[in-house]
Structure formats: structure tokens, C-alpha cells
Design a protein around this nucleic acid. Structure first.
Lengths: 241, 241
DNA sequence: GAGTGGTCTAGACCACGAG
DNA sequence: TCGTGGTCTAGACCACTCA
């Protein structure tokens, strides 16, 4: 027996799929919809929450519920990439970076295989697409591998300098998990705190086994994919794209 | 201003973290807790939903809310793995498989690069840890690469036969996304339909570029990680673990 | 049958956005 | 100021589990 919430969500989803509701359209108010479907407002809101989690509907406080424009999905390219590929594929997007010095503690120290309290450079990156933030990255590198006085450099310059300072990488480990955003992440990314995010922990080591970078990436779950392509090493080694 | 829901969730989370509530413990009933915190039952249930999404609390209909035993997280090993590594690391776990013949359609046909209607063998795998299901995999292979009459074979035998029939792989592409489970997936995995899952689409091709396997994996977001390790190809090629 | 969670109701009050 | 969504209330009724 499908719940009323799901019945309503299915109906609205169908309305969007068949073009009766178009991207950018404002939905009738929640009170209106509740009356149409003859349910209480909490029930209707639950139905909208389903669609919101699917990325079909966007709620804007004080304005209404809107059919989301089909956003290009963010693609995180993991693994087999050339060393100068940016951490997230931000091709036509803008990234703002802020660099600060912090000290390793807890999980972060373990990730970098450095003792607690070790000085680190944190590069906080926020990817934008138009007005809207859409990816958050915290990159940590040992201070000796960080560009000096780079607080004011633009993102591209920081990345370029990082690559120059860094020894060649031997191994990259990426761990992907799903979780709810912290409230800070939710407000930074302007997503609902109920929308799960893709959390990627990236650890890059040089040939000596030294961890030269740890990165914590947060991508909104409704529009992020992570893609890994592995070329198996056979007799012939395929060229990497 | 933190909401009451978050205040309550924070308090319960703290009770768990500090050991005042221990794994396996049953929480007081929702009505009881609502009275303690002086909130209505929906508000209290929202607070529990937060903890449930974090994997700290498990709701069991008709029995109560329980502090979750720290479950071993499921680790999906992607990318750089030897060909005979199972799709999901199910080491001490049991897997049941069911094999049926289906026809490629829509997304699946595109994934396999086969025309719509092509015959496929579907291997439906359900990973168990004890009584509890914890991973769902749908593996599709062209019929000529599927073991004949394998409907009744155990999982391990099916996988072994698959590997024997399959040409060496050249490229594996894995796409990871976050979404809510379908109602079928939620009931099969016995998770709440509000708990996001890690959805992994795996596409394996042989040296000729033919797709020899497409797999759709669904892992519960509260206890699943996907790990990718890339050994960069430098002068010396590191041995694969 | 007693107790539990699951769903839903019909409101109330507050916070936000736009005119 | 008005309409919107955000949060919350104090119940009701149903479904499930277990004794």
C-alpha cells in the first residue's frame, strides 16, 4: 500500500517528466497543493521532500517550490587522471580558494600520516556555477609543499604552484562515502541539511610513500557523480586519455 | 537558533558517544522521550530520523529504537583490483545469487552498448551479514558470456564460471552517485526509504572495447564506502596488492 | 492485548522574500 | 503588509511485535 506521500510525489514527478510542469516553474503553494490532493500540509511537505531529495524540486523559503532546471551534474574524476587534472572537473566553472595554515589533528593527522600538531596548509576551495556554489574542497598539504604567501593567489595559480612543488605521485587513494552535510556545509553549498552529500577523501602519496596531499571533498548528492576509470595493465598498456 | 529537533538529536548523539547509551541498548519509547524532552512525537521522531541517517540509531517497527552496534562498514573495492576480486568485499559474508534471462532496454542497453532487446543474463546478488542484507548487486552479462544453466549454482560458482568465460578486461569504468533507494531496494536491504544509498554503476570492457559486464550496485549509505586506489604508472611499476 | 513505531491530521506560530 | 515556506503541536488511527 503506497503512502499518500509517495502517491503525491509520484504524481508530481510525472507532471514534471511529461512537461506539464517545466523547469523553472513555480509550483502552487504548499497550502494550495495540500488542498488539491486533500492532505494536510505536513503530508504534502513530505512529498515535496522526496522530490527535493531527487533533485527535481527546489524549495526557496518565502518564495515557493520550483521545478529545478536540469543542472549539469558535477563529475568528479578519480583515479586514472593525469597529474594536472584538477581535483574536480570544474571546466567552465569558477573556483575561489582561500589558503590558511592549520595544525593536523585527529583524523586529518592520520590521513596525512603526520604527528598531531604538525603544521599544514589548508586550501579551502569553493566551486561555483554561476551564482550557485556546488562543490566544496578542503585540501591539506604539508607546509613545505605549499606555495609560499599564496593567500591571495587565485585558484588556478595555487594549483599550478602546488603541482610544481609536488614530487611525482605514486599512489592515489580515494574513499567515497555518503553522509548528511554538516550545517556549515549545508549553508555553504546552499543545500538542505537533509540532502545527502558525496564525501570523497583523497590521499595522494609520492614514490617514497609520503602523503603529499589529503583532500576532503563534499559534493551535493543530487547533482554529483564520481567516475573512476581503470585501465587494466595487460600485455599492451593502453594510452591514458 | 538551533531547532528543537537538532537539540534533541545532539543530546542523544552525545549520550551515545559518552557511553550513557550503549550499542544494542533500546531507547525509551518515542512517547517517553517526547515527554522527557517536552516536545511532540513528530518532533522527537524527526530527531531520531537525524540519528538514523547518521547510522547511530536503528528503528525497528513494533519493537523500539536501538543504538546501532558499530557495524563493520562495507567496503567496495573499485578500480585497481585483480580480476578475481569479487565485486564487493564480502569476505566473511554470504551472498545469494539468482540468475535469470532478461532483455536489454533503455539505460541498460546503452551501458552494455547492445541494441535494445538483446538477450542478457541477469545475476541478482544479495549480500548478507548474519541475518541482515547489506548489499544489492545486479550484474548483467551478454548471454554468451554467462554460465549455462546456472540458475541453481551458488554465488561463488557463478562468479568463478563468469571469470573463466570472460576475456581479459581492458577497462573498468565505475560511476558513483548518491540517491534514495527505490521502495524495492529499501525493503530488500531493510533500510528506511529516507536513507540515501551509494549507487555504483560498473562497466567492464575487454581489449576489443566490447562491454562484457554491466553491474548496478546499491549499498546502504550509512555503512558503505567505496575505495579506489590508483597506482600511477611511473618509471617503476609498483606491484599491485 | 499491550506496547511499539508509521502515518496522518488540522491547525498554530515564526522567519523569510517581495511589493 | 502579505504570501510563502519552516517548525511545531496534540492528538488520531493503523501495522507490527511479542507475550
Amino acid at each position: 500500500m503506497p503512502s499518500r506521500r509517495d502517491t503525491i510525489a509520484d504524481d508530481l514527478r510525472d507532471r514534471i517528466a511529461t512537461g506539464r510542469l517545466n523547469p523553472g516553474d513555480r509550483l502552487p503553494s504548499e497550502a494550495h497543493l495540500a488542498a488539491q490532493y486533500m492532505v494536510s500540509t505536513p503530508t504534502l511537505r513530505n512529498a515535496l521532500a522526496v522530490l527535493q531529495a531527487e533533485g527535481l524540486v527546489e524549495k526557496v523559503h518565502g518564495k515557493g517550490n520550483f521545478v529545478r532546471r536540469p543542472v549539469r551534474r558535477i563529475t568528479y574524476l578519480g583515479g586514472a587522471r593525469t597529474p594536472d587534472t584538477p581535483v574536480v572537473d570544474l571546466a567552465p566553472l569558477s573556483v575561489t580558494a582561500r589558503t590558511t595554515k592549520v595544525r593536523a589533528r585527529g583524523h586529518l593527522a592520520a590521513l596525512l600520516k603526520m604527528p598531531t600538531g604538525s603544521p599544514l596548509t589548508e586550501i579551502l576551495c569553493l566551486g561555483h556555477e554561476g551564482e550557485r556554489p556546488h562543490s566544496l574542497a578542503r585540501i591539506y598539504v604539508p607546509c613545505d609543499l605549499a606555495p609560499a604567501a599564496c593567500e591571495s593567489l587565485p585558484y588556478e595559480a595555487v594549483v599550478t604552484r602546488l603541482m610544481e612543488l609536488r614530487p611525482p605521485l605514486a599512489e592515489v587513494r580515494e574513499e567515497i562515502s555518503v553522509r548528511l552535510p554538516t550545517s556549515e556545509e549545508a549553508s555553504t553549498l546552499r543545500i538542505s541539511s537533509a540532502l545527502a552529500v558525496l564525501a570523497i577523501t583523497r590521499q595522494a602519496a609520492d614514490t617514497a610513500g609520503r602523503v603529499v596531499e589529503a583532500a576532503l571533498l563534499v559534493l551535493p548528492g543530487d547533482r554529483a557523480d564520481a567516475v573512476f576509470t581503470t585501465h587494466h595493465m595487460l600485455d599492451e598498456r593502453p594510452a591514458e586519455a
